[in-house]
Amino acid sequence: MKNSTKGGKTLSRLLFVLSFFSAVAQAKPSGTLSETVRVSGLVEKPFTISTTSVGTMNVAERENTAIICDSGQTRKSLKSFRGVLLRDILDSAKVVLSNPGQRGEYYVLVRSTDNYNVLFSYNELTYGTAGESTWLVFEENGKPIDDDGRFVVFCASDRATGPRHVKWVNGIEVSKIILPVSN
């Protein structure tokens, strides 16, 4: 009788431990937390943005923004957010255009630790309306971002803001499209 009771307690403990770790695994965020965003690529001044250094940049606060998926469903409502325009970050890094006449061939890749990466054209960020509303966000609703990493990027002027809503941001890279040589 002692052995079956002892075995039952062991089994109960094992089931508890397994259910605990299963719950932890399910609650685990999809990305790895990064405290920094590396700005690199075709820039004169590569640099790293941290949770402390971002406050020294040209920070703005905006209100009443929603993350809307392409089906029209609201995924997240923000009463407010604080962030830095992606265009201002690129200006600080000083994008190197070897031939300004080819500026349409440059792009900005926003990378994340969960590999949900998004592309922006250099022209849309520099000369278009997206440049006035694409943000590297570090605070939502008066609090530092935690559940989606430390930094998030989205374009508030997109009709559907969800497809270019990047969580877990850890890199901003400037590159140029390599076009095939024409005959």
Rank of each mutant, 00 (worst) to 15 (best):
A27W: 01
G31I: 03
R38I: 05
A23M: 09
V24C: 05
L33H: 06
E35C: 09
F21T: 10
S53T: 15
S53L: 04
E35A: 13
T51H: 12
R62G: 05
A60E: 15
R38K: 14
K45H: 06
Q26W: 12
V37I: 05
T51C: 14
F47S: 05
P46H: 11
S50R: 03
S40G: 03
S50M: 03
A23E: 05
V54A: 13
E44S: 00
N58A: 12
A23P: 01
A25K: 07
M57E: 14
N58Y: 12
T32V: 12
T52M: 12
K28L: 04
V54Y: 11
E63Y: 15
P46R: 14
R62D: 12
S50I: 02
F21K: 05
S40E: 12
V24T: 03
T51G: 12
L42A: 01
A60V: 06
T56W: 05
V24F: 02
V59P: 09
K45L: 06
K45R: 08
F21V: 10
V43H: 01
P29N: 02
A23I: 02
F21P: 14
M57P: 03
S50G: 10
S30N: 10
V24M: 03
K45S: 09
T48I: 12
E63C: 08
Q26T: 01
Q26Y: 02
I49R: 08
R62E: 14
G55H: 14
P46N: 05
P46L: 05
A23K: 05
S34M: 03
T48L: 10
L42K: 00
V37G: 05
P46F: 04
A23L: 04
G55Y: 09
S22W: 06
N58K: 15
T51V: 12
K28F: 02
